[in-house]
Write a protein that binds this DNA or RNA. Structure first.
Lengths: 208, 208
DNA sequence: TTGTTCTTGAAACAAGTGTATCATACAAAT
DNA sequence: ATTTGTATGATACACTTGTTTCAAGAACAA
C-alpha cells in the first residue's frame, strides 16, 4: 500500500517539527500543522503509518513518535591518524594509538562508515593514487585488517618498491593480482610474500 | 558553579535515556532513574542545569529536554535526487521536489556537508567524470547555485555538447575556462553563453 | 548561635495528551 | 443495491506530566 497524500503531509510535518524543535509533535500538533480538525484522524493515520513501518511509537507515551528512517542515526568518531603517501607505509593503529589523542576526529554517520568497526582515516598526500581516483587531499577510510576478499580494495604495501598503493586485490594461483580501479590501466602481479595488506579501504571522502 | 554530583547523575541519565529511547525523559522518569523521590527535586535541578546552559527545555512542553552538547551535533539529511551522467542535465531540485519523498536520504554530519544549506546528492552513472577523479557509483554532493567563484568545482552543462561535466570554473576575459581536477589534462574554453552552472560540487563520497 | 543558601520532600493542581467511541461521507468492489 | 474499506469528524475519558506551594533538613559563613 502506498503512502497517501495526507499521510505524506503528516510525515513531512513530523520531519520538520523534529528538525525545528528537537522533539516529536503530539497528535494535536500534527492536526494543527496539517489542517486536520481532530486528533482522532491523526491517530488513525499514525496507526496506519506505524503499521506500514514508517514510524514507531511507544504506547501511552507523549511525544514518542520516531521516524523509522532516522532510527539508526549512529554517529561514529573516526580518528584521523595521519597521512597516506606513496613512499611510506601507512600508519597502522595499535592499541595505544587509539588511546592517544588523534590529530583530529571526524564525526561520521553510520551511513558513511557503513557501521564498520575499527575504522580510521588518513589524508592523502600527493597524486600517487590517481589510478584509484583518489586525489591529493582526499580522505580515505580504512578498516584495520590484514586479509581481504577477492575484489576488495586494500591499502597494500609493496615491499620491493617500498610503496603503498590502493588496489583491488585478487588471490590467484601462486600470485597476487593488484587491479587499479581505473579500468584503462593494467593490473600488476606480485608474489604473495612481496605484498602486505595493511587495511581495507571502505570509503573515500573528498571535501571541496 | 560546578556541576554537582546529583546533577551530573541526572545529565548522564538523560544522555542514556535519549540514546536508548530516542526521546527525552520526563521529570518522573528522571526521578525514578536517579533514585530521587519526587518530581519537584528533579524540577529544581533541571532549572539549575538550564540556567547553567547544559540543557534546554520548552516550558510546559512534555519531554522537551534537549542536551546543549547535542544541539550542534549537526546531522543533515541530504536527499538523493537521482543520477548524474554525461549525456543528461542534472536534476535541479524545485520547491516541490524537496517535499516529495526522495529516492533515498543520506544522513551526513556537518563535518561532511560543511554546514552548507541546500545540499543534495546525485549518484554518478558511467565513467565520464574520471578527469575529476570521480568514478562510476560515486556520490557527488551538490549545493544548489547558479554562480560560482573562480576555482570552485561546478556541475556545468555544456550547451553545445549537450553534456554535464565537473570542472573548476574560471571567469576570464570574454570566456570561461573549465579546468579538470586532473592537472595532466588541458583546460577547455567556452563562451559564457555556451555553459550553464547547475550547482557547486562541495564533496564526493565513495563507498566501497 | 543565627542567618543564608542549597538540597530534598510531600502533595496537589491544571493543563497537555494518547486513546476510545460513535458517526458520517465517499469510493471501489461484488 | 449492498458491502467493504478508508478518510474524516466530534466528543469525551483517563492518564501523563510540568509546575507550584509549603515545609524541612544540610552545609556553611559570620
Amino acid at each position: 500500500m502506498a503512502v497517501s497524500n495526507t499521510r505524506l503531509r503528516i510525515l513531512n510535518f513530523i520531519r520538520k517539527f523534529l528538525d525545528e524543535r528537537g522533539y516529536a509533535p503530539t497528535v494535536r500538533d500534527i492536526a494543527r500543522g496539517c489542517n486536520i480538525s481532530t486528533p482522532s484522524v491523526v491517530q488513525h493515520h499514525l496507526n496506519t503509518l506505524e503499521r506500514q513501518g514508517y514510524i514507531h511509537r511507544d504506547p501511552e507515551v507523549f511525544r514518542s513518535i520516531q521516524l523509522a528512517e532516522r532510527k539508526r542515526e549512529g554517529i561514529s568518531r573516526v580518528p584521523l591518524l595521519g597521512t597516506i603517501a606513496a613512499g611510506e607505509p601507512i600508519p597502522v593503529p595499535t592499541s595505544d594509538t587509539w588511546a592517544t589523542i588523534p590529530e583530529e576526529t571526524l564525526q561520521l554517520t553510520d551511513e558513511v562508515t557503513q557501521g564498520k568497526k575499527g575504522v580510521y582515516a588518513l589524508k592523502v598526500k600527493g597524486i600517487s593514487m590517481i589510478d584509484a581516483f583518489v586525489d591529493d587531499g582526499d580522505i580515505v577510510l580504512i578498516q584495520q585488517t590484514s586479509t581481504v576478499e577477492d575484489g576488495e580494495v586494500a591499502a597494500v604495501w609493496l615491499k620491493i618498491e617500498q610503496e603503498v598503493t590502493l588496489k583491488k586485490v585478487y588471490h590467484e594461483a601462486g600470485r597476487i593480482r593488484l587491479q587499479p580501479a581505473n579500468r584503462q590501466m593494467e593490473p600488476m602481479y606480485y608474489k604473495p610474500e612481496d605484498v602486505e595488506v595493511q587495511g581495507k579501504v571502505i570509503g573515500v571522502l573528498r571535501k571541496l
